[in-house]
Design a protein around this nucleic acid. Sequence first.
DNA 1: AAAAATCTATACTGTTTGGTATATATAGGT
DNA 2: ACCTATATATACCAAACAGTATAGATTTTT
Lengths: 196, 196
Amino acid sequence: MSTKAERTTAYIIETVAPLFNKHGYIGTSMSDLTEATGLTKGAIYGNFENKEALALSAFEYNRNILLTALDEELNAPGSALDKLSNLTEFYKKYDAFTLKMGGCPILNVGVDAQHNNKLLAAAVKETIKEIEGKIALVLENGLNNGELKLPVTPLQFAKQLFTMIQGAIAMSTITLDRKYLLNTITYLEILIKREL
Amino acid sequence: MSTKAERTTAYIIETVAPLFNKHGYIGTSMSDLTEATGLTKGAIYGNFENKEALALSAFEYNRNILLTALDEELNAPGSALDKLSNLTEFYKKYDAFTLKMGGCPILNVGVDAQHNNKLLAAAVKETIKEIEGKIALVLENGLNNGELKLPVTPLQFAKQLFTMIQGAIAMSTITLDRKYLLNTITYLEILIKREL
DNA sequence: AAAAATCTATACTGTTTGGTATATATAGGT
DNA sequence: ACCTATATATACCAAACAGTATAGATTTTT
């Protein structure tokens, strides 16, 4: 069984991750964190070196949830097209999926950290690369199987796909209108059926 | 000629607009503003009621630059397809265009203000509606001319177009890689040529 | 050019910021 | 059950926060 401190550390991360995601690095104060966790500064600083380390752990927590969910869709049994279909279905519900974490961590932290925190900004860039790689791998396998053909390289197509998805997420987030998400994904489904 | 105070007000807005756009509402402090403008708090608070009013003016300043530039492209003489071509050309250089204002104000303020400032968040939503309306109008005119046909309503197509553009902006901004912008716009040009 | 209006600088407010030293309380191992 | 190690709370720090009162400087109007 895990030690008390490990459980406290995990509890803190889980609790503050949505706060950092919603209000940004600077926008989240230590008093916000003590209030949300019910712990004191002593407890938090006993488990994390400083605010930055905590914010980074919080992002990584959200990122792992996202990557795990994506892996589940992309590694499910079935053809490459099946996996892509899993992916689009997943993103149709992405707003509900990211509700607990306070919205899309890639969009929120990516934009917030750009000029406010280099470590976080780099972590987001790395996460994007990972996701694009995962999608590209599925496409490459489908290509090698002869199951589908591509107008561009697998990575290039994956990047285009993810860009459109991220655009839908951005628009839905900013306008609070999930139609952007639904309509874009519907378009992507048609695009996949037609092009591949 | 304008009065001294009016010029000072304008000077303050021009100077602080990129700061608010880059670092967000909470991330920009009054001392950042006095430092950048070379003015004191007295001068700034003499021209603006508070930080929020200044941030709103700063966003509106950037927004007006953007809307004016878009109007120039969409109201230029020529056919509807010409105007759409102007639009895609404009967005190919969007990263350079938004450099002075510290990045895309719709993306930056839209994400930042979401949970930090309702007034700003509402202003961004309104701006998106305006831009979509402008694009939709061009499409509608082209439709009425018999110049082009659309798979969906003009507004719906405008929204899809803008979502993809905004996705490219988001990805380019977060990764600092303008290829996302270029590749997406290239794709849009093909899409317009094929679908319309 | 004088008077009235307006703009800006200075100095200050109370509050909140991230972070720390230390004392106490609690957990884990024997 | 005790002892040691560790985790948490309390009280504090200097700096930075947004905002303000007022006095002096500069425009603008007359």
